[in-house]
Amino acid sequence: MKDKNTLTRFLLEQIQTIAPDSDTDNLDPDEDMRDELDLDSMDFLRLLESISKQLSVNIPEVDYNKITTLNNMVNYIQAIAR
């Protein structure tokens, strides 16, 4: 999933699965998605665990707080998937 748009779409789908009430259409990609979409720490943990599993990538817990915006998350995953 090297294509940025495909990856973005995939991540938004994952957010929708965890938090189907999320208005991902209007998510500012540079704002903290936890604030914007009312995700609590358990939601966010589940989201990253699910992404790690489905993309077979290892996201160490220590990095979780570096990828709280959509853009950061996309860039981070692209970098580690390379």
């Binding site: 189907p20 009430d21 009312d38 995700l39 358990m42």
Partner: peptide
């Protein structure tokens, strides 16, 4: 199920709604 989850989260908030 997705619709029910969305309904519950919207009304209750993420801390209270079922996972």
């Amino acid at each position: 199920i997705t619709a029910l989850m969305a309904h519950a989260r919207k009304k209750l908030g993420s801390a209270v709604a079922p996972r």
